[in-house]
């Protein structure tokens, strides 16, 4: 019973990180109707930037800012420099470019920094609080929960409470009509990519200290989990990404705790397969087609 409570609590913290990353995939999908397979590689580049800045300044927060800026800048450059230049009619060219970019970025990181895992210190203690003999969340888990929830709140406000968010949503839903109303749609698309890059970078930065350490493939598994979540929740649904993220986080935590870490990826892939078989559009997907 104690074990179950502990696994559920850590699963929640991990799940929110997965949810954030899935949210970043949803943001790109809504802006550009593209699954950005390069999101993990871009996020890893951003975490390397954070690692370098934190190493040079000694400040975790400076590193965090560097990760956000790098994630946003790299994704904006990817959209302006690559994705915008491939044919738009079908989703395939953009997807292939993104997969190519994964290889380029990961190889570059491998050449520059080697294959070893660099240990990254968490800014807070990672030993869990013990409440009544039951180990629960660590201070770092609490930090992750707080940051993730704050970011979700911030994104909800940005998209639903500001005129910029209104333009972002309109551009995603109906680009042609939005342009006729004077909305600078190309700029909104770039902004969506940048925003999504920053969110992905933050998710990866929160995750890496709890894992083996930093190397070119640090965020790969996070991407697989988040992709599962995005498909589970429907690529169009931020709410779906949130709920799905927590579910997958808890699933991974429970399977790891009771059956072993090696089984967890299998469990996630089994879930992905199941969703694709039963409800390919996602559980939270609205049944509507994008207007012109």
């Amino acid at each position: 019973m104690d074990r179950l409570v502990f696994l559920l609590a850590t699963g929640l913290a991990r799940g929110l990180v997965v949810a954030l990353f899935a949210l970043s995939l949803v943001i790109v999908w809504r802006a550009a109707r593209l699954v950005n397979f390069a999101q993990a590689a871009v996020a890893t580049v951003a975490v390397f930037a954070a690692f370098a800045v934190t190493g040079a300044t000694g400040s975790f927060w400076a590193g965090l800012a560097a990760a956000l800026l790098t994630g946003a800048a790299v994704n904006a450059a990817v959209e302006r420099g690559l994705v915008r230049r491939v044919p738009q009619g079908s989703p395939l060219p953009g997807m292939i470019v993104a997969i190519g970019l994964v290889m380029v970025l990961q190889s570059a990181l491998g050449i520059a920094f080697g294959p070893r895992h660099r240990p990254m210190a968490a800014p807070f203690d990672e030993r869990p609080f013990v409440v009544g003999g039951v180990p629960l969340l660590s201070p770092y888990d609490l930090f992750v929960l707080t940051v993730a929830l704050a970011l979700v709140g911030l994104l909800a406000w940005l998209f639903n409470g500001t005129t910029l968010g209104l333009q972002l949503r309109a551009s995603a839903a109906a680009p042609e009509v939005s342009r006729l109303l004077g909305v600078r749609v190309p700029r909104m698309v770039t902004l969506g990519w940048a925003l999504s890059g920053a969110v992905a970078a933050l998710a990866a930065l929160l995750l890496v200290p709890t894992e083996l350490g930093l190397n070119a493939h640090s965020a790969d598994l996070l991407f697989v989990h988040a992709f599962t979540v995005a498909v589970l929740g429907g690529l169009d649904s931020p709410t779906g990404a949130l709920i799905g993220g927590v579910l997958v986080g808890v699933l991974v935590s429970l399977v790891t705790g009771y059956l072993g870490a090696g089984v967890a990826p299998l469990a996630v892939l089994a879930l992905l397969t199941l969703v694709l078989l039963v409800r390919p559009a996602g559980i939270f997907a609205a049944a509507q087609v994008r207007a012109a």
């Binding site: 949503r169 839903a173 109906a174 009509v177 939005s178 006729l180 509507q288 207007a291 012109a292």
Partner: peptide, 12 residues
């Protein structure tokens, strides 16, 4: 311009 047909942003 009010284009023909589906010119309302249906998700808003």
């Amino acid at each position: 311009q009010v284009p023909e047909g589906r010119s309302v942003v249906t998700e808003l």
